[in-house]
């Protein structure tokens, strides 16, 4: 396969293109001004009928505007190309990660199958091997499910079933469900504050967000995960602060972690399983709710805090939230 050109190559082409059009503009101005001077000096003598009336400068100014337009267009294309290049790179990372994730359990399953096929394995051992194979096939299943989930989410199905709930009750419920889903003991999460206000959410979509946060607090942790969840109702927003005791986040990663396919590499935990899409989708889901998510960390091994903000019903983004509710109703009716 042809190797994509480097960023340096694109920058060089862009710079050369800019130099080319600036040169063209310079030559053009020079040509125009020199002709104008000649015309001023000898125009009357050559053809007295031609009278300069100032309207001739319109094509000149128009030309400059057009050239500036071309330049802006080129800058826009350049910017777009760079975004594509970055995405391409990240997509390569994603493929490499997924391939690695698929290969590890697959090689283990293959090893056990070949062992069972070629050796006289005692019954006890056989049972142990079957268990390990099941564990690996589950891992494969989960990975395939998450890849399939990506494609379904990609079709703008992020969230569609919006209803009004009491914020505090739902936050506790969803986070407890996530804890259960990952087989963590109940006391691994503690709650602080109350959120006695209403918000509009798609429960299933928000469940994905909480599952992702709990999953990350397990994966990016050298110890047993401990989660603290603070919640409160502000004037316009419900604020949830989800803090774990994990490895923390470097300052340069605090924004990047929400980018598509972005993954953090930590030397102490190099084999973290994942696709680099969990937090990207969490952010997309919250955006769809009219909310936002940001991450903050005090530093290495000092845990990470994810701050989620969601609009309070009838206090913020009223029109947008009403539109979500209306569409949900329409969606429900269309399904019936």
């Amino acid at each position: 396969m042809k190797k994509p050109h480097s960023l340096f190559y694109h920058i060089s082409v862009f710079a050369l293109a800019q130099i080319a059009w600036l040169l063209l503009l310079g030559i053009w101005i020079y040509w125009y001004v020199s002709n104008y001077i000649i015309f001023e000096k000898v125009g009357d003598q050559i053809s007295p009928q031609l009278i300069y009336d100032g309207i001739n400068s319109i094509p000149f100014i128009g030309g400059i505007v057009l050239l500036i337009g071309i330049s802006l267009g080129m800058s826009f294309i350049f910017r777009h190309l760079n975004v594509q290049l970055r995405l391409h790179k990240l997509y390569d990372n994603f493929i490499a990660n997924v391939t690695h994730e698929l290969k590890s359990p697959l090689s283990s399953i293959q090893l056990y199958l070949e062992t069972l096929n070629s050796r006289n394995v005692p019954l006890e051992k056989q049972k142990e091997f079957y268990k390990l194979m099941l564990k690996d096939s589950n891992r494969l299943k989960n990975l395939i499910d998450s890849i399939l989930e990506i494609s379904s989410l990609d079709q703008k199905n992020i969230a569609h079933d919006f209803h009004i709930y009491n914020a505090g009750d739902e936050i506790i419920k969803l986070s407890k469900e996530a804890i259960l889903q990952f087989n963590l003991p109940e006391d691994s999460i503690s709650f602080e504050g109350t959120a006695n206000c209403r918000f509009v959410i798609d429960k299933n979509a928000l469940k994905i967000v909480f599952n992702n946060l709990v999953d990350n607090s397990i994966k990016y942790n050298l110890e047993k995960p401990k989660i603290n969840l603070k919640m409160k109702c502000g004037l316009k927003k419900v604020i949830i602060e989800f803090t774990d005791n994990g490895i923390g986040l470097a300052s340069e990663d605090q924004k990047k972690i929400f980018n598509k396919f972005h993954r953090i590499y930590n030397k102490d935990i190099p084999s973290v399983k994942g696709t680099g899409l969990g937090l990207y989708w969490s952010k997309e889901i919250l955006k769809r709710h009219g909310g936002n998510i940001t991450a903050f960390s005090e530093g290495k091994n000092l845990g990470t805090t994810f701050k989620i903000e969601l609009p309070i019903y009838k206090s913020s983004k009223v029109r947008y939230i009403n539109k979500l509710l209306r569409r949900s109703k329409e969606y429900e009716i269309s399904r019936k």
């Binding site: 590890s104 283990s108 090893l111 056990y112 062992t115 050796r119 051992k125 390990l132 690996d136 084999s271």
Partner: peptide, 16 residues
């Protein structure tokens, strides 16, 4: 090997 399942399988086969 940090993949536990694989390490167990390798250990068994090499011991055998």
């Amino acid at each position: 090997e940090d993949e536990e399942t694989l390490a167990v399988g390798l250990e068994y086969n090499l011991s055998e």
